Computed example of a mutant assay.
Amino acid sequence: MIALQMHQFVRTTDPVKYTLAEGAQYIPKTHLLSEALKFEKSLGLRNVVLVQPSIYGTDNTCMLDALRALGPNHGRAVVTFDPETIDPETLQHWHQLGVRGVRVNTQSIGKRMKEEEMVTILHKYADIIRPYNWVLQLYVPLDAVIILEKIVPKLGVTICLDHFGSPALNGHSHFEDPYSLPGFQSLVNLLLQGTTYVKLSAPYRICRDEAWEDLEPLAKELVRVAGMSRAVFASDWPHTRFEGLDIKPYIEALIEWCGNDDALIERVFKGNAETLWGV
């Protein structure tokens, strides 16, 4: 296993110290940083990118505590914040700790943004993070990428899309051709433009087939288009709402989708992520 980097949704959770946001969509089980590091070691991973989960809203305390414990040599993080209230001093402090991105998540809460709203919000975030060279990480449905294709070139920041771009495969009658999925062509176009990355993560959130056969054509095409430069593996640990899942079969599938090409595998599991997160 070449991989040296992992994305995770941190759940270093003390239910008293780290309270959930009002309206949290689920209550997580307790997962400690030590468990994350044990999981990381089992996969041969060395560096960790922590991603703020939706259940904590804009309170990044839990994740930042974990980031301090990791240290900036082995840890990076993606926060959430309110663009109307965030201040430069906080951003600079977070940057020193190892924060390298902000996450906008509409998928977890089932929110749909109209084009005008999306333009306004993404420009606000982009203007704030541009001086720090942070990543704007988006968890939005694939069909929303049609709108993103028009917005992203004007933002002047690096974009990272979660979970294969979040396609809706279930019930789709032509998903064997990924280009038949609304938004997929736009995703490819953005990847080819060079400022957008896609995380190859959490196939279980997209299709229920444990062999992920429905996802395979789409995954292989993303690897073909962006595997050498802008496609990155992410573990999605601790697989919230899918706790106990064995991720190793997915890793084996992704290696196979890379055609067992050592150079391509190195980029997907290591090189692209190091470039994206500066770790």
Rank of each mutant, 00 (worst) to 15 (best):
C160G: 04
L222I: 09
F175K: 04
P167S: 09
E117Q: 12
D209N: 15
A77C: 05
F233M: 09
T240D: 10
W94D: 00
A168H: 11
K29R: 12
I147F: 06
K124L: 14
N272A: 13
K114S: 02
A126E: 11
G171D: 06
L142V: 04
D214K: 09
T90V: 04
Y250E: 01
L222D: 03
V119S: 10
G44L: 12
N189Y: 03
N133G: 15
L122G: 05
L32F: 11
L45Q: 06
A226S: 07
Q8H: 13
K220M: 11
Y56D: 08
E256K: 13
F233Q: 04
D177I: 11
A263R: 05
I128G: 14
D261P: 01
V78D: 14
F175Y: 15
T120N: 11
W257Q: 05
T275A: 06
G23N: 13
I206Q: 10
S229W: 10
T120H: 14
H7I: 01
S186Q: 15
K114L: 12
N60L: 09
Q52I: 03
E274Q: 12
V198G: 04
N272I: 06
L169H: 10
I27K: 10
V152C: 10
A219R: 00
R103L: 02
D236Q: 10
L97I: 00
G271A: 07
I146L: 14
R241C: 03
E176K: 11
P53D: 04
E274C: 07
L122K: 01
G259S: 10
W134V: 00
K111S: 07
D87P: 00
K29V: 08
T58L: 12
V140Y: 03
Y125A: 02
E116L: 14
S34L: 06
L45F: 14
F9W: 06
T13N: 12
L91K: 08
E35H: 06
L264Q: 03
I55Q: 12
Y56I: 06
F233G: 02
D209Q: 13
K29H: 05
Q96F: 03
G101M: 03
A24K: 13
Y18V: 01
E274I: 09
D246H: 08
